[in-house]
Structure formats: structure tokens, C-alpha cells
Nucleic acid binder design. Structure first.
Lengths: 342, 342
DNA sequence: ACGCTGGATGGTAGCGCTACCATGACGGCG
DNA sequence: CGCCGTCATGGTAGCGCTACCATCCAGCGT
């Protein structure tokens, strides 16, 4: 008589089925799958054959329960559609796709409270590692990260006091570099246009301000910001506002490339010459910046690489080889293009 | 003597701890959490107090193991950075964020094999539902979907033979509508420019071809495609290729908005008048289309809504109320703008 | 008064896997 | 030649939760 399958299991083969078919103990199958070195060549072959024949796939839930550790990377980003985070997430997925780890992605919508809630949820799964965007967690969120009992990588920024590990670059320096470039190119009444003023944008603004003050050019009326989510259309609107406030504007540093593109389009529409009358600098250097007409100067950042590196560091920590360099600054690069070539 | 915590558990409170503190059975705690209706008001209050005091969070792995069902939606998309899928994913996340369900996102990189592998991995978790992009699964992948034992929603397209449920629109009709619009606007030598020619782009091309042939305008030299991933820069290059092949081109239907933007920029750079000399139509109607100069005609699609609707249908099926309408066509809309206003 | 029904509650036995420890075989060593 | 470390393998006992069934207690009809 065929062994009746459990009422719940639905008939999928279990490790015990594999063990029976291979004529070994269940624990040996478990070892052969997780740590083949510790099982003799012979048994390994038999077990592999049984696995293939039965189509056995380990149940990650049972595994997580028994080992008190889920093979999951928790990833928290403030936006799913913002290309910048999408690139980081892609880097994370690509780095993890050939290993045992799954990705659990959470969207905080730029909300600290939502971040806390998601950390709570993620923590309940005992993830193998946590990767979170930014360094401005609420005190509660920070405590959750510290007590998560797994490697934590904060990404997108550098900062003095990481929870554990950190991969990013300095938004303040990026903002300063962009602004200094405009100043060097001969622009003087340089505006800052920023949407969705998250902490990173705030630091870009701080960099802009530092450069402007150093050159004796700062004026509060040059700054135009909004908390509204960024978009090309919003860039156009903000630029119109900025011009209305300050008609003599001769340059703009935009907190991201969407805004910069909106500014460019509005210049076309209003027949404002770029770079002659207005210089434009974006941030992140999305592909379209190089193809725009005129092409747009931008600060190139390494989002995909941030994702890759954060995973590499977390994996090293999981393997017990906590990297000696816990803070990695991937830097940025000013890409000079036509939009500031006066 | 304090009960020694298990060697593995790490000291987090369990359902037994809550039960002891509340003075009830563990199973009653379980019920109070999952199905409060079935527990008396009194006990519910006691249990909630114990939960709050201990900071108890259920272990999803144990739950999944015991109930043979994980509270996970498996979501498979071909790209994480393509804005189109990012919008669908955002709709899914937003619809699921206030329930018990987690999202398990997989990136197939437009590969059928990778899709099969991911379905295998996802299936091992016994997900509550699966949402997959497209209707062109390999036979193996389709079998995996059919035997997954959970609701399945295919998204992004309509088609005659869904695995289970379907939410999307007709790419063929979209391509035809876009092309007919160009013809009606008076364009005659209308090119098709397409990158990353996935099945959906193929169908847009088929729609283009149908419209062109119906008007007696089709010519194979009008079609320029590449399997390379889409980008604005690629749009410029393909448009240059198309012009070289067919200098008399007077319109282009692009398989997406990135390509259309690249075409627009190249026109600017080559001083080709839009819409006078060349008409341009994109696909998806990203925000930047309305802000471009000139603004670009496009086929508006409802990606976010596709995500929302797919979740709603899956949730209904999970609740036992399988919707009577298993195929939902969300349609599209031609948005006429300056780029075709001749 | 008695069984009977239905709703609330609890006990028991797993879900599929792995941590921990035991066992047994083997070979090197004094 | 027996002792002991080392290695491969296996048995047992859970991990934290829920399915299933048992129990108990009203409230009801007869």
C-alpha cells in the first residue's frame, strides 16, 4: 500500500522521501544539499539522483523554522518607481540571483513610520541581512536595525555613524561640485530647484549653498523646492516659478535629472538658450542626459554598483568575514556636457 | 527559575508565551490573531494586551509551515528598472501593503528559462498567489503555473487562453491605433522603431503592420528593430539608422516612450522639424511625454491600475469569490499631442 | 429532566527541516 | 594490540505554528 500523503502537504516530496529513495538518513540529504563537502562522493551522487527523480525542492519555510534563520535579504527603499532606487535594487537582485537568498523588498514611501513598520515585519522573519536606503532612520527604526541580529547595510549615502555597514557617496559634495562647476563656467545667479526634498536632496541643497556662499553668490530667493514627488512636468513648473521669482536667473542646479529635463524642455518652450542664457546641471546622470539636446551636465552616481557592493559586504559578514572597511564611499563624477558649455 | 530559552530561538516571545500570560490556550491566541470573530470579546482583549506587552510578532515561517500556505504573492516581471513594470509593481505593493501578504519579486530578465527557474523557487514556498507579466510563458512555465495550486494572474496583455486570470490590454490594437493616427494626420512613410523586441513589442509591431498594410503603405524597410534593451540613447541611434535606410521617412511609431524621446532629441540635433517634417508617436505615455517640447503623442496605458486590479482579483480568488470576469481588458487611450499635430 | 445542538475553547499531533549528540568505522600511535 | 581522535552517518527532538478533533457549557425543545 502506498503511504498516504499527509492531509496538508499536498503531495510534494519531502526530504524523507529523498532519503528513503537514496537509502540514506534524512539528515544526510540535508547535509548533501547545504554542505556537500561533508558527504562522501558516493552518497552525494545517489542523493542527487533521487532529488532529480522526485523533483524535490526544499521548503524554505521549514528550513527557516528549523534553523532560526531565513535565507532572505530584507531591502527597504523609499520608492519603487524612482529610477535611482530601481537601479540599486537591480544591483541587489543581480548579485543575489545565483545564490540561495531571496529578496524581500519594502517600499517606505519616504515615511519613517512606514519604515519602522516594515522593519518590524521583516524582523519577524529573521532575515539573513538588511539593506536600507539612507542614514536618517528614526530612533525606533535605528534600534530595530541594531537589534535585528543580522548584518545591516545602509546605502546611498556616506555618514559618520553607520548602524553596521555603509555604501554610498556624499550628496553634499555632489551638490557642491555641481554648483562650483556652474560658477566656474561663468554663471552667477544660479538657482537650486528641488522636488521631493528627502534627506539626500537636503544635503545636495546644503552643498549648493556652501558653494554659493563661498563665492558670495547665495541668495535665498534662488532656492525653489517642494515636497511633491519629482517628475519632468514638475521640473517645468518649478522652473517657471523660479524664473518668476528671479527673472535674472542664469543657471540652475536640479536635485535630479527628471527636474533637469523639465527645465530643459521649458527653456525650449520659452526660447531660452541653453547653455547661453541658462546653464543646467542635473543629478544622477541617467542615460537620457547624454542624449538630450543640448546634452545635460550631470553628477554621475553609481547606483547599480551600490546595490552590488552592499550585497557583497552583507554576504561577507554572513560568512563571518566582516569586511575591515565598513564604510565604502563610491564617489561620483561630474560629467560636463553642452548644457553648461558656455 | 526562569524557563531557559531554547538554544536556537534567540529569545523572541512565542505564541505559547502570549498564551501563558493571557491565561488561555495557544490555539486561542492563534485564532484571536487570525480570525478574531471566533474568539469572545473578553479573551480577545486579554490576548491583545499580552501581545502588546510582550511585543509578540508571529513567525511567518512557522505559520507557513503549519498551514502549508505562505502569505506571499509571487510576482514575476522581466525588468526591475523599466518604468512600465515598476508602475505595475508599485500598484501591487500599494494594494498589498495593508494586509498580511508579503511580495516576493522576481526578475526574469526577459528570459523564459529564468522565468521557469523562478517559478520553481517561488512554488517551493506555496505562495498565496502568483502574478506574472505576459502570456508567452514556455510550456514548462505554463505547467508550473497551472499546478501551482494558487490563483494566477497574468498581467500586461489580453489573450485568448489565460492560465487562470488576466489583466491587461491589447498591444496589437495599441500599435494599430497609434499607426492609424499617424496615417490620419497625413503621414505616409511611417517607420516603426523598436528596441528590446519582447512579445508585447512584437504585437505592437503587428498592429503597426496591419494598419500600414490596410492603407497600402507597408514597406519592410520602414521597420527598424533590435533586441537590445531600450534606452533614450538607443532611440537616437535607431532613428539615425532608420533615416539612413529610408531618408524620406515622415513619421515614426516607437515601441516605447524612451525610444520616442530619443527620436525627438535626434530630430532637434539634426534640425528636423517635429511635427512638420516628422511625426512621432510613443507608447505608454510616461509623464515626460506631456512636458517634452514639442509634447509627444503617445498611447496611454494603465500600468498602476493593472497592478491594483491583479491583486484585487487574486485576493477575491483567495477568499473563494473567484471573479466571474476572469479576463479584464483595461484598454488604452491615444493621447494626441504636438508631435503629430501637422 | 434529558438529550441535543452549536459556539467557544483546548489538547494533541504534526508541518518539513536542521541542531545536537550518538554511533560506528577507520587508522595512527604508543 | 588496544586506545583514541577523526570522519562519515544517523537518530532524536524540537523550531513556532495551525489542522483536526475533543471537550465543555449554555440554551433549547420535548
Amino acid at each position: 500500500m502506498i503511504k498516504p500523503r499527509s492531509r496538508r502537504g499536498g503531495g510534494r516530496p519531502t526530504i524523507a522521501d529523498v532519503a528513503r529513495k537514496a537509502g540514506v538518513g534524512a539528515i544526510t540529504v540535508s547535509r548533501a544539499l547545504r554542505d556537500p563537502e561533508r558527504v562522501s562522493e558516493d552518497l552525494r551522487r545517489q542523493i542527487r539522483a533521487a532529488v532529480d527523480e522526485l523533483g524535490y525542492v526544499p521548503d524554505p519555510n521549514a528550513r527557516a523554522l528549523a534553523s532560526a534563520r531565513a535565507e532572505v535579504f530584507g531591502v527597504l527603499v523609499p520608492s519603487l518607481t524612482n529610477n535611482v532606487f530601481a537601479e540599486v535594487v537591480r544591483g541587489i537582485y543581480d548579485s543575489l540571483s545565483d545564490g540561495p537568498f531571496r529578496v524581500q523588498l519594502g517600499n517606505t514611501h519616504y515615511s519613517g513610520l512606514e519604515e519602522e513598520r516594515l522593519l518590524q515585519v521583516f524582523g519577524s522573519q529573521r532575515p539573513a541581512a538588511l539593506i536600507v536606503a539612507g542614514i536618517d532612520q528614526t530612533p525606533t527604526a535605528r534600534k530595530l536595525l541594531e537589534t535585528a541580529g543580522c548584518p545591516v547595510v545602509q546605502v546611498m549615502e556616506t555618514g559618520p555613524d553607520p548602524v553596521d555597514m555603509l555604501v554610498g557617496f556624499s550628496h553634499l559634495d555632489g551638490g557642491r561640485t555641481a554648483t562650483e562647476h556652474l560658477i566656474e563656467a561663468g554663471y552667477r545667479r544660479i538657482g537650486f530647484i528641488g522636488a521631493r526634498m528627502d534627506p539626500r536632496s537636503q544635503r545636495r541643497l546644503a552643498g549648493y549653498r556652501a558653494a554659493m556662499e563661498a563665492a558670495g553668490l547665495f541668495d535665498a530667493r534662488l532656492v525653489t523646492t517642494t515636497p511633491v514627488l519629482s517628475s519632468v512636468t514638475l521640473g517645468r513648473e518649478l522652473f517657471r516659478d523660479a524664473l518668476a521669482k528671479m527673472p535674472a536667473l542664469d543657471g540652475v542646479f536640479c536635485n535630479n535629472d527628471d527636474i533637469a529635463l523639465g527645465v530643459l524642455f521649458e527653456c525650449h518652450r520659452a526660447a531660452i538658450a541653453v547653455p547661453k542664457t541658462i546653464g543646467i546641471v542635473g543629478f544622477n546622470d541617467l542615460d537620457m542626459m547624454q542624449s538630450a539636446f543640448p546634452s545635460i551636465t550631470s553628477i554621475r552616481t553609481y547606483r547599480y554598483e551600490i546595490g552590488r557592493r552592499s550585497v557583497a559586504m552583507a554576504l561577507a559578514a554572513i560568512a563571518g568575514k566582516r569586511p575591515e572597511q565598513r564604510v565604502v564611499d563610491l564617489g561620483f563624477e561630474l560629467i560636463r556636457r553642452e548644457s553648461t558649455a558656455r
